[in-house]
Amino acid sequence: MSVPSEAAAATPRTGVIHNIGYRNYTGPRLGRGYATRSLFVQSLRGAYGLGRSAKSKVLPMVLLAAMCVPALIIVALAVSTDADKLATDYPSYLSNTSTLFGIFLAAQAPVALSRDLRFMTVPLYFSRPLTRTDYVRAKFAAMAAALLILTGLPVVILYLGALLAGMDLGHNTAHALYGLGTAVLYSVLYAAVGLVVAAATPRRGFGVAAIIGVLVVSTTVAGIAWALIGGPTGSPSANWAGLLSPSTLVDSLSTWLFRLPQGDGPSWPPSNGAGIVFLAEFIVTAAASYGLLLRRYRKF
């Protein structure tokens, strides 16, 4: 090993530098983009407990199973009864299971952010080439991707099952894509809301409770508002209540975007103009959450 000349010059006191085996690193340094991608992969794996303890794999895997098993049952029934139509449409499968991925978000968003805050690991990231924006971007993308796997997988299962049962290809392809579109909407908005709440507290327990609280309370409030404005009696304007919670917002938005049949409850915008308002709220919420996250990490 050659010792840097500056080292030799700066330590005349020691005279001889003993080579005890320290090797300098001469290989590639792949920089910010690589670090950001590595953080994304690590966080995504972490959301499913991969690379973590056996205990932390339990909940995400149970939830993944809970999301997929009903889809498998629906497919099995459809194949065995030789049905010409699945028992559920792809987007509505997701609105019916939104509680499950809400729980997943509540459990895993704090894992993505609170740990680094609680154990004060964040400054170690920022003392590296990675910037605050890179960190937030990687975490946001990882959370959204983890949710997308959870919501997209049952849609894929349903679609494959529909093909297997020899159902109408065009209709099922279109609606499976609507389903995936809805899965993307859920993933982005849920990740945005969950991460902002998780970043507010270094305590994982508080984060879990707060995210569940936000999702449950807002959905309940939206339901109550819908009922009070006159939803049960068929007043279309009651559907404005869909703006009040993430789950009803995405539900309404996907109904409007993909021209799906209108369901019960606050699940469709009352007009095209209202649809634009719903879309605007979605974009503003996601963007504002991203901005708040960046702000949260500015002081590190």
């Binding site: 690193y25 290989g27 590639p28 340094r29 690589y34 670090a35 690590q42 590296r128 080439p129």
Partner: peptide, 16 residues
């Protein structure tokens, strides 16, 4: 595990 992760955050390829 921790130091490997931090090394990758500094841009080192996984094996390195």
């Amino acid at each position: 595990e921790f130091v490997v992760h931090m090394a990758r955050m500094s841009g080192l390829p996984a094996a390195a």
